[in-house]
Design a protein around this nucleic acid. Structure first.
Lengths: 338, 338
DNA sequence: TTGAAAGCGCTAACAG
DNA sequence: CTGTTAGCGCTTTCAA
């Protein structure tokens, strides 16, 4: 592999001069620069980042820690968002997965330190609180899709579940629905709480009644071993005479919405004429391909990735002037079920 | 940040000795080692990988290039497989995404070279041929889910679409089905070709007839702008009297299978009693949550990631004795639709 | 505008 | 078993 000295020799200059050209420093005569650049091209010289780093003590590498990515497929969009932003900044991305194991996580932090990472992005695949003490790692960190329990000094980018659910409910109401039932997420998780509160608030603000028997869990069980029961819940809600039936189903997420669609089909109910259904998350593999295609609130995963990387850079540059914790809106994606 | 010299000074040994301890080299007295380790712990010393690399010329970093991950959610499992194997080998993973853009890809290879990556894993999210000339990059590379068009000297790990589709057909036949229709993938893609051929072969081997009007595309259109038509295809196949109807639907993938399930529900047909359905891919967000849960052939994404990393390490170590191109079996996942 | 010397943190090569 | 010397490829510092 060619080194800076090979280039210097070929160009007939000192290695320091080559370094200047490579790093785009000023105060180089055009002629010298041209000669150096030609030598670089001819030798196909590629700078050795590690050597540079030993000197400068800045790695140009960002670390991304994820927990169990696998379970929620679309959360890859977080990674994509991060990648796009990181590559735009001409940095590199080191990535590692905890698989949920605590020992593994410690190992990862250590590896990142060995690499003298500039900063880290810590992403979870469910929106939830984590125990996180920045002091133990001592690296600029931004949390994605999670936040540090009991403290407000750790930068985090979160989806705005409340806003999304509120908007979904309002959308249904705006379409003229007054008889709205809610098939919920697992009540154990944070998003369920946030989304549920928004539903209650939006209904109240519209002066609409909430029937307790029209709020049904679509998923139950401990986190990690949930079981779906949305199909049965929806059948139960829908297998009644029209006048005793909701006209719209707000759902906890797209999987639940999908099961509601199956329930409607099994009852020969037409969507959206007999019953409207609105999802949440916009898992496109479901929402786009279910019959009919699902109207849903999108989780802004890609934007979370982008914005988090953005924020990290701002923090590193000392120019971050946004709130420590930012919530990104969930946009409505209109398809055919409302 | 503490350096090896700080540790050496505190332990009262030379820096070389500290280096030996850190790297687990032999020929150190237990006493010295203990002293050094104590100093390391006391100073919270963390080796500087970049400095090490400048000397050893090995980075301990593997690069992973992906194309559009987002579109096929479960393909994250490829990344997980790679990660798990890479971390087991105590290496790090640098990851980059081409977003499909050629310029971007060139940039990524260059970045990898700047990092003096030990080897690269190149993963695509659809099984297809790519144009790839190892000579242009000059880094040990293993292809995942794709292969170099027109050459057989580039290591690759692929899913065995033929085997999977053959097994799926045989499974249906073994359950007693003789009237099997096929709702296919977009005929433009490679997997469709492979899976289609296997269906034809398996039926032939069982002496079963193939009705041309029972082979229907479930997806059509140019790659990237496909439109689903599986619902209509399935309705058409199933909206006939029982004696003129298939008893089983082999499908190109889980999304197609899902639409078939919707079609069956809309026709008040019971799955699997009236009509059996088998999917392909095992996108669990669909296959586990559809009603009823889907029997399907799993794409071995996680294993592809694992095995590819494994193969790359073997190649780097000069011990790879497997075929250049390996095909991994697609296992049957039995749920409730057959 | 350019170059010489020094040194970043580490390990290879050798000596003891 | 341990230490010394040199040097990896680059940038910093300072002088020319």
């Amino acid at each position: 592999m060619q080194t800076i000295k090979d280039v210097a020799a070929l160009a007939g200059v000192s290695d320091r001069t080559v370094s200047r050209v490579v790093n785009g420093e000023p105060n180089i005569s055009a002629k010298t620069r041209a000669r150096v650049e030609e030598a670089i091209a001819r030798l196909n010289y590629i700078p050795n980042l590690a050597a540079r780093m030993v000197r400068t003590n800045r790695s140009g590498v960002i670390g991304l820690i994820t927990d169990v990515v696998a379970t929620t497929p679309n959360s890859v969009d977080i990674i994509r968002g991060v990648q796009d932003r990181v590559s735009r900044a001409n940095l590199s991305l080191l990535i590692a997965n905890t698989s949920g194991a605590a020992g593994e996580e410690a190992r990862i932090w250590r590896t990142f330190q060995e690499h003298r990472i500039d900063g880290v992005l810590f992403a979870t695949m469910y929106h939830h609180a984590i125990t996180f003490d920045p002091a133990t790692h001592n690296m600029p960190t931004v949390l994605l899709n999670c936040f540090a329990a009991g403290r407000d000094d750790v930068p985090a980018i979160l989806p705005d579940d409340y806003q999304g659910s509120h908007a979904a409910t309002c959308h249904l109401i705006a379409q003229g629905h007054t008889r709205i039932a809610y098939v919920t997420l697992n009540p154990l998780i944070l998003a369920a709480e946030l989304r549920g509160a928004a539903f209650v608030d939006a209904m109240g603000q519209a002066g609409l009644p909430i029937r307790p028997d029209w709020i049904r869990p679509g998923i139950v069980g401990a986190v990690g071993e949930e079981v779906m029961c949305a199909y049965d819940a929806a059948r139960d809600l829908l297998a009644r005479p029209a006048e005793d039936r909701p006209t719209a189903l707000l759902t906890g997420n797209d999987e639940i919405a999908m099961q509601c669609l199956f329930a409607a089909a099994s009852l020969n109910l037409h969507v959206p004429d007999d019953i409207a259904v609105i999802g949440f998350d916009d898992f496109r593999i479901i929402s786009e391909q279910v019959v009919p295609p699902l109207t849903t609130m999108a989780l802004p995963y890609y934007e979370i990735g982008m914005r988090a990387a953005d924020k990290l850079f701002a923090i590193l540059a000392g120019t971050d002037d946004q709130p420590t914790i930012e919530r990104l809106a969930c946009p409505l994606v209109e398809r055919r079920t409302v």
